[in-house]
Design a protein around this nucleic acid. Structure first.
Length: 437
DNA sequence: TCTGGGGTCCTAGGACCC
DNA sequence: TCTGGGGTCCTAGGACCC
């Protein structure tokens, strides 16, 4: 099916995205920044993480190191601001609230973007374009933020339409691919680099270009079977999405995180274990807070350290270790103890450390249901059969913590799967599930 | 001197079990 | 006792996103 058929052309998704989000938030509270070149900097004022159009026009790239830009900044009077994530988070919530008035089906995709499902709602408007203009006006009027809106028959097309709305002034901030003829679409897509497609990053675009596929139009006309064989299922899906075959559904509820990272670069190099410990402890504490916030536990914590790879004259060292927990937990003190235990094992004196952090893994939701399973085995059988019984219990009740009692002394005991990865430990408490004797 | 901080999914390959 | 295939779990690494 190609996008020539009318049903494939009908817009199903909208993508709304705030232009230069962090910069626009700062401008909303300080109108003097309007029409001036502005950047917002990352932690420690290291990199430019948001740029106004004036700054983009100077050729300054995303995540460009600020110290390299100082001369340019002086010359063009660039205003540089430290980031204020509390403000941006709050503004983001307000944008999403406004957009929910346009459709109840909203997927918050990132801090400054969301997908809306139109689902026939657009009959309230004479056209999708009119609906998009109304969104723009309302967000601008109520919050002082500029947004662009793209409409398409798939999420990938809506993203692409948003890109067009942003780059081509003739669209006045709203682009509905469904309102264009196939000739118009062909002409548009033939002038957009393949790199701009959602899902095509730097590596894949290089390979595509080497194969002569340089524009979005060329990618759209590439057989999806070829994309599959060269790049896998993800690119195959992208190919289908570009042709108006929607493969990605709207995800309204954000699923709980499967890993939670907390890490940061140091403003100044760090040499000693006590300094690293202090940082690690505070990162664990914020990660654990997020973990409990989503009603989850984790069963392992990974901690890592890195020297500064940009200082090539210095000896380099980076390492990480995964510390399994005896029981799945979200307890800050326990997690800190585990992380510091790991940190001591990977710390090497004599290096200048630049970055450290932790990652919580093996995250599962806290399951309220209780389950128990009693099995009896002879001593010679217990290792295998007991593990099977426990796995079965895990599957049946979705629990990852269970208890094992030995008939002899009734004392709960734990067992580790000998040849499994050290990450995979099963431990038990709470519920008696099996007897072994 | 100064170079972000989060996340996701897919794949290949090893180890293990039956 | 020998052999082997299929399924599954795990990890590491690579790609992507903002």
């Amino acid at each position: 099916m190609r996008s020539d058929s009318p049903s494939a052309n009908r817009p199903v998704f909208a993508l709304v995205d705030v232009n230069n989000f962090y910069v626009s938030c700062e401008r909303a509270f300080n109108p003097k920044l309007e029409n001036r070149p502005v950047v917002v900097l990352s932690n420690n004022d290291g990199c430019a993480v948001a740029r106004s159009n004036e700054v983009k026009a100077l050729g300054i790239k995303m995540a460009a190191p600020w110290f390299q830009l100082k001369d340019l900044a002086k010359k063009h009077h660039i205003v540089a601001l430290s980031s204020n994530y509390t403000l941006y988070g709050d503004m983001s919530d307000r944008v999403m609230t406004i957009l929910r008035d346009f459709s109840p089906d909203v997927e918050i995709y990132s801090i400054d973007e969301c997908f809306l499902s139109l689902n026939g709602l657009n009959i309230l408007w004479s056209s999708a374009t009119e609906m998009g203009q109304s969104m723009r006006q309302r967000v601008r009027q109520w919050l002082g933020l500029p947004v662009c809106v793209g409409f398409g028959a798939s999420k990938t097309l809506a993203k692409l339409a948003n890109h067009i709305a942003k780059k081509q002034p003739a669209f006045n901030g709203v682009c509905d691919l469904g309102s264009l003829s196939s000739e118009q679409i062909d002409a548009l897509l033939a002038n957009i680099a393949v790199r701009e497609v959602w899902g095509v990053g730097s590596r894949i675009s290089l390979k595509l270009e080497a194969a002569g596929i340089k524009t979005v139009q060329a990618l759209r006309n590439t057989p999806t079977s070829w994309l599959r064989s060269k790049f896998g299922v993800v690119m195959e899906r992208t190919g289908n999405e570009l042709n108006g075959i929607s493969c990605l559904a709207l995800e309204e509820v954000t699923p709980p995180r499967k890993q939670i990272i907390s890490s940061r670069s140091f403003g100044q190099l760090v040499y000693t274990l006590p300094e690293l410990k202090e940082s690690v402890a505070s990162y664990v504490s914020s990660a654990a807070e997020k973990l409990r916030g989503q009603q989850s536990t984790c069963d392992a914590i990974q901690v890592f350290v890195e020297t500064n790879p940009h200082r090539e004259q210095d000896p380099q060292y980076s390492n990480s270790i995964t510390v399994p927990l005896p029981n799945a937990s979200g307890d800050t003190r326990l997690l800190i103890r585990a992380a510091l235990f790991g940190l001591e094992r990977i710390y090497r004196p004599g290096f200048a450390y630049k970055k450290t952090g932790v990652m919580l893994t093996g995250i599962s939701s806290v399951v309220m249901s209780q389950g128990s399973l009693f099995t009896e085995y002879g001593a010679d059988e217990k290792s295998t059969k007991l593990m099977n019984a426990i796995d079965q219990l895990n599957r049946r009740y979705g629990r990852n913590t269970v208890s094992v009692f030995s008939a002899g002394n009734r004392k709960p005991w734990t067992m580790r799967r000998g040849n499994m990865s050290p990450n995979y430990t099963t431990s038990w408490h709470d519920v008696p599930v099996a007897y072994a004797y």
